[in-house]
Protein backbone atom coordinates (compact mmCIF):
# COMPACT_ATOMS: atom_id res chain seq x y z
CA UNK A 1 0.00 0.00 0.00
CA UNK A 2 1.37 3.41 -0.91
CA UNK A 3 1.64 5.66 2.10
CA UNK A 4 0.24 9.05 1.06
CA UNK A 5 1.98 12.21 2.13
CA UNK A 6 0.05 14.40 4.55
CA UNK A 7 0.54 17.33 2.22
CA UNK A 8 1.85 17.78 -1.31
CA UNK A 9 2.50 21.24 -2.67
CA UNK A 10 3.25 21.21 -6.39
CA UNK A 11 4.42 24.10 -8.48
CA UNK A 12 2.59 26.91 -6.66
CA UNK A 13 2.96 30.29 -8.32
CA UNK A 14 1.41 33.55 -7.13
CA UNK A 15 1.67 37.09 -8.39
CA UNK A 16 0.53 39.92 -6.15
CA UNK A 17 0.41 43.43 -7.51
CA UNK A 18 2.48 42.44 -10.52
CA UNK A 19 5.26 40.99 -8.41
CA UNK A 20 6.05 37.25 -8.38
CA UNK A 21 5.67 36.36 -4.73
CA UNK A 22 5.86 32.60 -5.15
CA UNK A 23 7.65 30.87 -7.97
CA UNK A 24 7.09 27.20 -8.56
CA UNK A 25 7.03 26.20 -4.91
CA UNK A 26 7.11 22.43 -4.41
CA UNK A 27 7.51 20.38 -1.28
CA UNK A 28 5.81 17.66 0.69
CA UNK A 29 5.05 16.86 4.28
CA UNK A 30 4.65 13.51 6.02
CA UNK A 31 2.60 12.42 9.01
CA UNK A 32 3.67 13.91 12.32
CA UNK A 33 6.42 15.86 10.64
CA UNK A 34 7.38 19.41 11.58
CA UNK A 35 8.66 21.21 8.52
CA UNK A 36 10.36 24.55 9.03
CA UNK A 37 10.18 27.04 6.21
CA UNK A 38 13.09 29.35 6.74
CA UNK A 39 13.50 32.58 4.92
CA UNK A 40 14.15 36.26 5.20
CA UNK A 41 11.32 38.76 5.67
CA UNK A 42 9.48 39.35 2.46
CA UNK A 43 10.57 36.06 0.91
CA UNK A 44 6.97 34.89 0.67
CA UNK A 45 6.70 32.74 3.78
CA UNK A 46 3.29 33.98 4.88
CA UNK A 47 2.01 33.71 1.32
CA UNK A 48 2.83 30.03 1.21
CA UNK A 49 0.81 29.47 4.34
CA UNK A 50 -2.05 31.60 3.06
CA UNK A 51 -2.11 29.55 -0.13
CA UNK A 52 -2.15 26.24 1.68
CA UNK A 53 -4.89 27.48 4.01
CA UNK A 54 -6.90 28.78 1.08
CA UNK A 55 -6.89 32.40 2.13
CA UNK A 56 -5.38 33.28 -1.23
CA UNK A 57 -5.70 31.23 -4.37
CA UNK A 58 -2.56 30.39 -6.33
CA UNK A 59 -2.21 31.39 -9.96
CA UNK A 60 -0.87 27.97 -10.84
CA UNK A 61 -0.01 24.74 -9.09
CA UNK A 62 -1.71 22.10 -7.00
CA UNK A 63 -2.16 21.38 -3.33
CA UNK A 64 -2.97 17.86 -2.22
CA UNK A 65 -3.85 16.76 1.28
CA UNK A 66 -3.58 13.02 1.79
CA UNK A 67 -3.82 12.54 -1.95
CA UNK A 68 -6.98 14.69 -2.34
CA UNK A 69 -6.71 17.91 -4.27
CA UNK A 70 -7.75 20.88 -2.19
CA UNK A 71 -6.51 23.72 -4.39
CA UNK A 72 -9.99 25.06 -5.08
CA UNK A 73 -11.56 24.11 -1.78
CA UNK A 74 -12.96 26.88 0.47
CA UNK A 75 -10.96 27.94 3.50
CA UNK A 76 -13.46 26.64 5.98
CA UNK A 77 -13.59 23.18 4.45
CA UNK A 78 -9.94 22.26 4.49
CA UNK A 79 -9.63 21.27 8.18
CA UNK A 80 -6.26 22.94 8.35
CA UNK A 81 -5.34 24.78 11.53
CA UNK A 82 -3.66 28.18 11.31
CA UNK A 83 -1.77 29.99 14.03
CA UNK A 84 -1.41 33.59 12.92
CA UNK A 85 1.52 35.76 13.80
CA UNK A 86 -0.60 37.95 16.04
CA UNK A 87 -2.57 34.89 17.16
CA UNK A 88 -5.95 36.16 15.93
CA UNK A 89 -7.74 35.58 19.22
CA UNK A 90 -11.34 36.80 19.32
CA UNK A 91 -11.25 39.75 21.63
CA UNK A 92 -15.01 39.96 22.04
CA UNK A 93 -15.14 36.43 23.51
CA UNK A 94 -13.63 34.88 26.59
CA UNK A 95 -11.09 32.07 26.50
CA UNK A 96 -13.64 29.28 26.70
CA UNK A 97 -15.66 30.71 23.82
CA UNK A 98 -12.50 31.18 21.80
CA UNK A 99 -11.57 27.57 22.18
CA UNK A 100 -15.13 26.44 21.61
CA UNK A 101 -15.50 28.45 18.39
CA UNK A 102 -14.42 25.75 15.96
CA UNK A 103 -16.53 23.20 17.80
CA UNK A 104 -19.62 25.40 17.63
CA UNK A 105 -19.12 25.84 13.92
CA UNK A 106 -19.10 22.05 13.59
CA UNK A 107 -22.45 21.98 15.39
CA UNK A 108 -21.35 19.73 18.17
CA UNK A 109 -23.55 19.06 21.15
CA UNK A 110 -23.11 21.63 23.93
CA UNK A 111 -22.15 18.97 26.42
CA UNK A 112 -19.56 17.58 24.07
CA UNK A 113 -18.20 21.08 23.48
CA UNK A 114 -17.87 21.69 27.20
CA UNK A 115 -16.08 18.40 27.66
CA UNK A 116 -13.57 19.04 24.91
CA UNK A 117 -12.90 22.60 26.01
CA UNK A 118 -12.33 21.60 29.57
CA UNK A 119 -10.08 18.72 28.55
CA UNK A 120 -7.80 20.70 26.35
CA UNK A 121 -7.69 23.62 28.74
CA UNK A 122 -6.54 21.36 31.51
CA UNK A 123 -3.97 19.64 29.37
CA UNK A 124 -2.55 23.03 28.36
CA UNK A 125 -2.70 24.25 31.92
CA UNK A 126 -5.01 27.16 31.20
CA UNK A 127 -8.15 25.89 32.85
CA UNK A 128 -8.15 28.71 35.40
CA UNK A 129 -8.27 31.30 32.60
CA UNK A 130 -11.36 29.98 30.88
CA UNK A 131 -13.61 32.86 31.90
CA UNK A 132 -11.04 35.56 31.21
CA UNK A 133 -10.83 37.65 28.10
CA UNK A 134 -7.77 37.70 25.82
CA UNK A 135 -6.90 41.23 26.89
CA UNK A 136 -6.40 39.94 30.42
CA UNK A 137 -3.85 37.28 29.47
CA UNK A 138 -0.09 37.38 29.24
CA UNK A 139 1.78 36.68 26.02
CA UNK A 140 2.50 33.07 26.85
CA UNK A 141 -1.04 32.39 28.02
CA UNK A 142 -2.40 33.84 24.77
CA UNK A 143 -0.18 31.46 22.84
CA UNK A 144 -1.53 28.50 24.73
CA UNK A 145 -5.10 29.59 24.18
CA UNK A 146 -4.40 29.97 20.50
CA UNK A 147 -2.84 26.52 20.33
CA UNK A 148 -5.72 25.00 22.26
CA UNK A 149 -8.25 26.62 19.99
CA UNK A 150 -6.50 25.34 16.89
CA UNK A 151 -5.97 21.80 18.11
CA UNK A 152 -9.32 21.15 19.76
CA UNK A 153 -11.03 20.77 16.37
CA UNK A 154 -8.68 17.93 15.44
CA UNK A 155 -7.07 19.25 12.26
CA UNK A 156 -4.61 16.96 10.55
CA UNK A 157 -2.31 19.79 9.57
CA UNK A 158 -1.39 22.98 11.43
CA UNK A 159 0.23 26.01 9.88
CA UNK A 160 2.17 28.33 12.14
CA UNK A 161 3.27 31.80 11.08
CA UNK A 162 6.14 32.88 13.33
CA UNK A 163 3.93 32.45 16.39
CA UNK A 164 6.71 32.98 18.92
CA UNK A 165 8.21 36.13 17.42
CA UNK A 166 6.56 38.51 19.89
CA UNK A 167 7.59 36.61 23.03
CA UNK A 168 10.62 37.08 25.22
CA UNK A 169 13.37 34.47 24.96
CA UNK A 170 12.38 32.59 28.13
CA UNK A 171 8.86 31.99 26.86
CA UNK A 172 10.12 31.22 23.43
CA UNK A 173 12.38 28.50 24.80
CA UNK A 174 9.57 26.93 26.83
CA UNK A 175 6.97 27.02 24.13
CA UNK A 176 9.29 25.55 21.53
CA UNK A 177 9.47 22.30 23.42
CA UNK A 178 5.74 22.45 23.86
CA UNK A 179 5.18 22.72 20.16
CA UNK A 180 7.72 19.94 19.59
CA UNK A 181 5.46 17.54 21.41
CA UNK A 182 2.29 18.42 19.56
CA UNK A 183 2.64 16.17 16.47
CA UNK A 184 3.00 13.10 18.62
CA UNK A 185 0.28 13.96 21.13
CA UNK A 186 -2.29 15.25 18.66
CA UNK A 187 -1.36 13.33 15.52
CA UNK A 188 -0.85 16.43 13.40
CA UNK A 189 1.81 17.64 11.01
CA UNK A 190 3.08 21.17 11.31
CA UNK A 191 4.43 23.65 8.82
CA UNK A 192 6.27 26.28 10.80
CA UNK A 193 7.38 29.44 9.10
CA UNK A 194 10.13 31.52 10.69
CA UNK A 195 13.30 33.52 10.20
CA UNK A 196 14.61 32.50 13.63
CA UNK A 197 17.40 29.92 13.41
CA UNK A 198 16.79 28.65 16.92
CA UNK A 199 13.27 27.61 15.89
CA UNK A 200 14.74 25.73 12.98
CA UNK A 201 17.34 23.98 15.06
CA UNK A 202 15.03 22.83 17.81
CA UNK A 203 11.65 22.33 16.17
CA UNK A 204 12.27 21.10 12.69
CA UNK A 205 12.34 17.62 11.32
CA UNK A 206 12.89 18.96 7.85
CA UNK A 207 13.78 22.44 6.67
CA UNK A 208 12.88 24.17 3.42
CA UNK A 209 14.78 27.32 2.55
CA UNK A 210 12.67 29.99 0.87
CA UNK A 211 14.55 32.62 -1.07
CA UNK A 212 12.81 35.24 -3.21
CA UNK A 213 9.73 33.11 -3.63
CA UNK A 214 11.49 29.89 -4.50
CA UNK A 215 12.34 26.83 -2.42
CA UNK A 216 16.05 26.55 -3.02
CA UNK A 217 16.75 23.71 -0.61
CA UNK A 218 14.60 21.16 1.11
CA UNK A 219 15.73 18.30 3.21
CA UNK A 220 16.50 16.84 6.62
CA UNK A 221 17.37 19.40 9.28
CA UNK A 222 20.91 18.31 10.05
CA UNK A 223 21.78 18.14 6.40
CA UNK A 224 20.46 21.62 5.61
CA UNK A 225 21.90 23.31 8.68
CA UNK A 226 25.34 21.80 8.43
CA UNK A 227 25.74 21.49 4.69
CA UNK A 228 24.19 24.44 2.84
CA UNK A 229 24.51 23.89 -0.87
CA UNK A 230 24.31 27.45 -2.17
CA UNK A 231 25.15 31.00 -1.19
CA UNK A 232 21.62 32.09 -0.45
CA UNK A 233 21.05 29.24 1.97
CA UNK A 234 24.33 29.85 3.63
CA UNK A 235 23.48 33.51 4.13
CA UNK A 236 20.14 32.71 5.64
CA UNK A 237 21.80 30.25 8.00
CA UNK A 238 24.25 32.88 9.14
CA UNK A 239 27.36 31.46 7.53
CA UNK A 240 30.34 33.58 6.52
CA UNK A 241 30.84 33.47 2.79
CA UNK A 242 34.17 34.03 1.10
CA UNK A 243 35.90 33.40 -2.20
CA UNK A 244 39.19 31.61 -2.52
CA UNK A 245 40.93 30.55 -5.69
CA UNK A 246 37.82 31.21 -7.74
CA UNK A 247 35.62 29.03 -5.56
CA UNK A 248 33.00 30.07 -3.02
CA UNK A 249 33.14 28.75 0.52
CA UNK A 250 31.00 29.05 3.58
CA UNK A 251 31.93 28.60 7.19
CA UNK A 252 29.71 28.86 10.24
CA UNK A 253 30.85 31.35 12.91
CA UNK A 254 31.00 28.53 15.44
CA UNK A 255 33.25 26.38 13.26
CA UNK A 256 36.16 28.80 12.87
CA UNK A 257 39.09 27.38 14.82
CA UNK A 258 41.69 29.49 16.56
CA UNK A 259 45.13 28.58 15.49
CA UNK A 260 45.63 27.94 11.82
CA UNK A 261 47.15 29.08 8.59
CA UNK A 262 44.77 31.88 7.71
CA UNK A 263 46.04 35.27 8.72
CA UNK A 264 43.40 37.35 10.47
CA UNK A 265 43.58 40.80 12.00
CA UNK A 266 41.18 41.58 14.81
CA UNK A 267 38.90 44.53 14.05
CA UNK A 268 36.49 44.08 16.94
CA UNK A 269 36.50 41.86 19.99
CA UNK A 270 33.28 41.91 22.02
CA UNK A 271 33.05 39.81 25.11
CA UNK A 272 29.64 38.48 26.04
CA UNK A 273 28.51 34.99 26.81
CA UNK A 274 31.15 34.04 24.24
CA UNK A 275 33.95 36.08 22.63
CA UNK A 276 32.70 37.61 19.40
CA UNK A 277 35.32 38.45 16.81
CA UNK A 278 35.14 40.49 13.62
CA UNK A 279 38.39 39.82 11.79
CA UNK A 280 39.84 40.91 8.49
CA UNK A 281 41.38 38.28 6.23
CA UNK A 282 42.62 38.18 2.70
CA UNK A 283 39.20 36.94 1.60
CA UNK A 284 37.28 39.68 3.36
CA UNK A 285 35.78 40.21 6.79
CA UNK A 286 34.72 37.18 8.82
CA UNK A 287 32.71 36.90 11.99
CA UNK A 288 33.19 34.07 14.47
CA UNK A 289 32.75 33.36 18.14
CA UNK A 290 34.73 31.16 20.49
CA UNK A 291 35.33 30.48 24.16
CA UNK A 292 39.04 30.90 23.59
CA UNK A 293 41.05 34.08 23.35
CA UNK A 294 42.37 35.26 20.02
CA UNK A 295 44.65 38.18 19.52
CA UNK A 296 45.49 37.92 15.83
CA UNK A 297 48.87 36.37 16.42
CA UNK A 298 48.10 32.73 15.91
CA UNK A 299 45.92 32.86 12.80
CA UNK A 300 42.70 30.94 12.30
CA UNK A 301 41.72 27.72 10.62
CA UNK A 302 38.95 27.60 8.04
CA UNK A 303 39.20 23.86 7.48
CA UNK A 304 35.52 23.37 8.35
CA UNK A 305 34.46 25.41 5.35
CA UNK A 306 31.97 24.00 2.90
CA UNK A 307 32.33 24.48 -0.78
CA UNK A 308 29.20 26.05 -2.26
CA UNK A 309 27.53 25.71 -5.60
CA UNK A 310 26.04 28.78 -7.28
Amino acid sequence: MVRLDKLNVQGICKKIGGVDILKDVTFSLRDKEIKIILGASGSGKTSILNTIAGIIKPDAGKILKKGMEITDLDVNRRNIGFLFQDLGLFYSMNVAENIAYGLRVRNLDLKEINRKVNDIARSFGIAEHLSKFPSQLSGGEKQLVSLARTLVTGPDLVLMDEPLSSLDSFLRNSLRWYIKDIPRKFDVSIIYVTHDLADAEILGDTIAILHEGRIIEDGKKEEILNHPKNTATARILGYNIYEKDGKTYAIHPSKVLIGGPTVAKVIYLERGIKNNYLVDTSFGKLYFFSDQEFNGQTGISLENSIELGA
Binding site: D119, A121, G125, L144, Y178
Partner: peptide, 23 residues
Protein backbone atom coordinates in the same frame (compact mmCIF):
# COMPACT_ATOMS: atom_id res chain seq x y z
CA UNK B 1 8.46 27.14 33.04
CA UNK B 2 5.60 25.59 31.14
CA UNK B 3 6.06 21.86 31.48
CA UNK B 4 5.48 19.90 28.31
CA UNK B 5 4.59 16.85 30.31
CA UNK B 6 1.37 18.63 31.19
CA UNK B 7 0.29 17.85 27.68
CA UNK B 8 -1.40 14.62 28.66
CA UNK B 9 -4.86 13.27 28.78
CA UNK B 10 -6.65 14.22 31.94
CA UNK B 11 -8.84 11.58 33.51
CA UNK B 12 -11.53 12.97 35.69
CA UNK B 13 -11.85 11.78 39.20
CA UNK B 14 -14.97 9.85 40.10
CA UNK B 15 -18.05 12.10 40.28
CA UNK B 16 -16.28 15.21 39.13
CA UNK B 17 -18.40 17.32 36.80
CA UNK B 18 -17.25 19.27 33.82
CA UNK B 19 -17.38 22.99 34.35
CA UNK B 20 -20.05 24.54 32.18
CA UNK B 21 -17.89 27.11 30.50
CA UNK B 22 -19.57 27.27 27.13
CA UNK B 23 -23.14 28.41 27.18
Amino acid sequence: MIDPSNLTQIILAEGEMYQDVVK
